[in-house]
Amino acid sequence: MTGAIAEPSRVGEVVEASTASFVAQCYELHQPPPLGSLVRTRAGSIMIYAIVFNARTGSIEPGRRPIARGQEEEEEGDIFKSNPQITKLLRTDFEAVVVGYRDELLHQYLPPAPGHIHSFVHICEKKEVEEFSGRLDFLDIILESKILLGVDELVGASLRYASGAHADPRAFLVEAGRALASSLGGDLHRLNSLLKRLK
């Protein structure tokens, strides 16, 4: 299924950064950008592009786990009304794998320097997604990345997401499938399962 492109907005800021990935904290609890979506952040003069994976929500203090509070409430939402402080005690983070950057030009390989802490993170506009996914070299970066989540899941999610930015999503996915077949031609089993995720 092809996903709709998320509304462009500022979703959070970088709280942990490395060359290959960064962690960002969302401004809104439970509202991370969708899995596989394209986000951007600034690092000085360059713009870093990354693909979202592994969003999680938990306590702001590590080791201090939230406790159940809803036994007396009718609805789940009432918990937050009765305890307005808990939205401040919880946070939603997401990770993003860096897939390229822009100086004067758009590059689909790792940037010379990582993102900055507290840089704002934006969800990219549809036009930007279309432009970025016009080339498919970034797939190899994901395929080779050492992320915890299944790499193939992320490849599938990112392509399904990006297809929403193209006029003919199926043609885009076929083209992406071919790029994957070139990269994974030697491993038909993996290719087969990956291609199934593109539909």
Binding site: V174, G177, A181, L188
Partner: peptide, 16 residues
């Protein structure tokens, strides 16, 4: 490969 799936056949033709 899952040859019954035209999408897969189309994607791998000419590469894999």
């Amino acid at each position: 490969l899952d040859a019954a799936d035209p999408f897969i056949v189309e994607a791998v033709a000419g590469s894999a």
